[in-house]
Simulated assay, not measured.
Amino acid sequence: YLAAHLDPHDTSQFDDTLSFYLNHIIKHLGERLQNKTGSRESGIRLFTSDNLYYRIGDGGEKITLSLNSPSETGNLLDFLDRKARGELEDWERE
């Protein structure tokens, strides 16, 4: 409803809209939400107890939402863990 009534030429509405969708998703996830990381610039990442991964934001003037399956989330968490430990292969760093 909110997105359908936004003025596409008024970028000042972006923050309010992003906040609305983020709060809606967090409320919907409820107790399943395990972790929330990121920022508006990098995209906000939400991880659930059943290994779903939501990402919202980082679309400039466009709000994007992606949802990854448990297996994709496991792969991402493994990648981020290995990246933090400095154990990535050369091809993975590119």
Rank of each mutant, 00 (worst) to 15 (best):
Y1L: 03
Y1W: 03
Y1D: 06
L2I: 07
L2G: 01
A3L: 11
A3R: 14
A4Y: 09
A4E: 14
H5Y: 05
H5E: 04
H5T: 09
L6R: 13
L6K: 08
L6W: 01
D7I: 04
P8W: 08
H9Y: 14
H9E: 14
D10G: 04
D10R: 01
T11W: 08
T11Q: 12
T11L: 13
Q13I: 07
F14Y: 15
D15R: 11
D15H: 11
D15T: 12
D15V: 13
D16K: 15
D16A: 15
T17L: 07
T17D: 01
T17H: 11
L18W: 07
L18E: 05
S19T: 14
S19N: 12
F20K: 08
Y21W: 09
L22P: 01
L22R: 06
N23I: 00
H24W: 00
H24Y: 01
I25R: 01
I26M: 05
K27T: 05
H28L: 10
H28F: 07
L29E: 10
L29K: 02
L29F: 04
G30V: 04
G30N: 10
R32Q: 07
R32L: 07
Q34T: 08
N35E: 08
N35C: 01
N35D: 02
T37Y: 01
G38H: 03
S39C: 09
R40D: 13
R40P: 02
E41C: 02
G43V: 06
G43T: 04
G43W: 05
G43C: 04
I44R: 03
R45T: 07
R45G: 00
R45M: 04
R45S: 05
R45C: 01
L46D: 00
F47T: 07
F47G: 01
F47K: 08
F47I: 10
T48Q: 06
S49I: 05
S49A: 06
D50I: 06
D50Y: 09
D50F: 10
Y53E: 11
Y53V: 03
Y53S: 08
Y53H: 15
Y54H: 06
Y54M: 05
Y54K: 02
I56M: 05
I56D: 00
G57A: 04
G57E: 02
D58R: 14
G59F: 11
G59V: 14
G60Y: 10
G60C: 09
E61S: 15
E61R: 15
K62A: 09
K62M: 10
K62V: 15
I63R: 02
I63A: 05
T64F: 14
L65T: 15
S66Y: 03
S66H: 05
S66Q: 15
L67W: 09
L67E: 10
N68H: 12
N68K: 10
N68R: 11
P70N: 04
P70Y: 04
S71N: 09
E72G: 13
T73E: 12
T73P: 02
G74I: 11
G74E: 15
N75Y: 11
N75G: 12
N75L: 13
L77N: 11
D78K: 15
F79R: 14
F79L: 13
L80E: 15
D81P: 00
D81L: 04
K83L: 04
K83E: 12
K83P: 00
K83I: 00
A84D: 13
A84S: 12
A84W: 07
A84C: 01
G86I: 13
D90Y: 06
W91D: 01
W91M: 01
R93P: 00
E94C: 02
E94S: 07
